Simulated assay, not measured.
Amino acid sequence: MVKISQGEGGPVQFRHRMEGLTSLVQGHRHSFGNLTDLVIPEDGRHRHTFRGITTTADGHRHTYTGQTGLNIGTGPNHFHRFRIMTNVADGHRHIITGRTTGVIRLGTTVGHRLIIEKIERQRVK
């Protein structure tokens, strides 16, 4: 998370939203959704770190972590491409690929949307 400026009531941060569906593996896909984390400067451009957990499908879920590609464009409408593999779960992995949204402003006045999944505890017999 990068603090850019002080807004009313606290720091304002700028990030990108990432969301979509994983590749199809063993007959199923997972949804993913997260915000980028740290900014990594690189030769006058930058990339972001990110991490998340997919939704449950076929009785399991996957974690993932990675870095976006370098920024494409400049200013508030720039975006990043990404392509990574999830961790192994249930004997396989999925590819997560796509592009981020433009910059979104987080702080006391602007919210964001993430995938939130209800987790239920089930008894194993």
Results as ranks from 00 to 15, higher is better:
2 V>A: 01
3 K>G: 08
3 K>R: 11
5 S>P: 10
5 S>R: 15
6 Q>I: 13
7 G>S: 08
9 G>I: 03
11 P>E: 12
15 R>W: 01
15 R>P: 00
17 R>I: 10
17 R>L: 02
17 R>A: 02
19 E>H: 08
21 L>N: 11
27 G>R: 14
27 G>K: 12
27 G>A: 06
28 H>A: 10
28 H>D: 05
28 H>Q: 07
29 R>H: 14
30 H>C: 06
31 S>R: 13
31 S>G: 15
33 G>M: 04
35 L>Y: 04
36 T>Q: 00
37 D>S: 04
37 D>M: 03
38 L>T: 08
38 L>C: 13
38 L>F: 14
39 V>Q: 00
40 I>L: 13
40 I>Q: 13
42 E>K: 15
42 E>A: 14
44 G>N: 10
44 G>Y: 03
46 H>M: 02
47 R>G: 01
48 H>V: 01
49 T>N: 11
50 F>I: 06
51 R>K: 13
52 G>H: 03
54 T>K: 02
57 A>I: 09
59 G>S: 06
59 G>F: 08
63 T>V: 01
65 T>W: 11
66 G>Q: 08
66 G>C: 05
69 G>I: 01
71 N>Y: 07
74 T>S: 11
81 R>K: 13
82 F>Y: 05
86 T>E: 07
86 T>I: 01
87 N>Q: 06
89 A>C: 09
90 D>E: 15
90 D>S: 15
92 H>N: 14
92 H>P: 11
93 R>W: 12
93 R>F: 13
94 H>Q: 09
94 H>E: 10
94 H>L: 05
95 I>S: 00
97 T>F: 11
97 T>G: 01
99 R>I: 10
102 G>P: 04
104 I>N: 11
104 I>M: 02
104 I>P: 04
105 R>M: 13
106 L>T: 05
107 G>M: 09
109 T>C: 09
109 T>S: 09
110 V>Y: 08
111 G>R: 09
114 L>P: 04
115 I>T: 05
115 I>H: 06
116 I>P: 06
119 I>Q: 13
122 Q>H: 15
